[in-house]
């Protein structure tokens, strides 16, 4: 397997103030590698979202270190963390978080725009990303004109268009029915075939299990088990999926 893209070591995170203070993470170490789809599972409140936020440079850990491509993020301020996110991390959220006033292709292009890429090729790249998720025909649709599954696919296109090396998805199928959930997971699994890319999917949905190369279980802010080497078995279970991933 290829190089470590995100390495988190001994992460602790305390959230809230005073009596409401919660130790969300109590010493978690996790490495995301290219070409791997990691499934992070655990009960509600176990710290999954908190861990994903820290891995994705949205939240700073209370202690422990996060390294992105070998570089520590410890000294990074908010603007530097934003720069790391826009250059290396693609997020997929449970509730899509598309911009309602922008069309599908504009939503995808926005990621590039934020990075200062405004050229004509951004349209082509956004179109390619939409084609990857099977939405080549919906460029000019607004989010309200798309189904939940389609909106989530736009969100995935947005996450991959910038060639982010880490795709972090927090409960991406939780708002979708079985069929759409499967479709989304298929796309994410395809993306994870790229050895330059690590995919982390947070979920407590057992239907997702077959798509994982690795399953990490978390409870009460601690990793309790880890299974690896599941990949080949998984892919062969879904032979009908053949979408192209950039």
């Amino acid at each position: 397997m290829s190089a470590a893209i995100i390495e988190a070591v001994d992460i602790e995170k305390t959230l809230g103030e005073g009596v409401a203070q919660v130790k969300a993470l109590r010493g978690v170490s996790l490495t995301l590698k290219g070409g791997e789809l990691t499934l992070l599972m655990g009960p509600s409140g176990s710290g999954k979202t908190t861990l994903l936020s820290i891995l994705g440079c949205m939240l700073a850990p209370s202690s422990g270190t996060v390294r992105l491509h070998g570089e520590s993020t410890a000294s990074a301020g908010p603007e530097e963390l934003a720069r790391l996110r826009r250059n290396h991390v693609g997020f997929v959220f449970q509730s899509y978080h598309l911009f309602p006033t922008l069309t599908a292709i504009e939503n995808v292009r926005l990621v590039l725009d934020v990075r200062g890429e405004h050229g004509a090729d951004t349209r082509t790249r956004a179109a390619d990303a939409l084609a990857t998720v099977g939405l080549a025909h919906k460029h000019h649709a607004f989010p309200r004109e798309l189904s939940g599954g389609e909106q989530q696919r736009v969100a995935i296109a947005r996450a991959i268009v910038g060639k982010a090396s880490a795709i972090l998805a927090d409960e991406p199928t939780a708002s979708l029915d079985r069929e759409n959930g499967q479709a989304i997971m298929t796309v994410l699994a395809e993306i994870a075939r790229n050895p330059e890319r690590a995919v982390l999917v947070v979920s407590h949905d057992p239907r997702i299990l077959p798509f994982a190369d690795r399953i990490v279980r978390i409870e009460d802010g601690r990793i309790v088990s880890e299974e690896t080497g599941l990949r080949d078995a998984v892919i062969s279970k879904e032979p009908e999926v053949t979408s192209h991933v950039p």
Partner: peptide, 16 residues
């Protein structure tokens, strides 16, 4: 505000 938070999450600078 939710959209601005999303912008920030996808890595937009404050300046943007």
């Amino acid at each position: 505000i939710a959209e601005f938070a999303t912008l920030r999450a996808i890595g937009s600078s404050t300046r943007y």
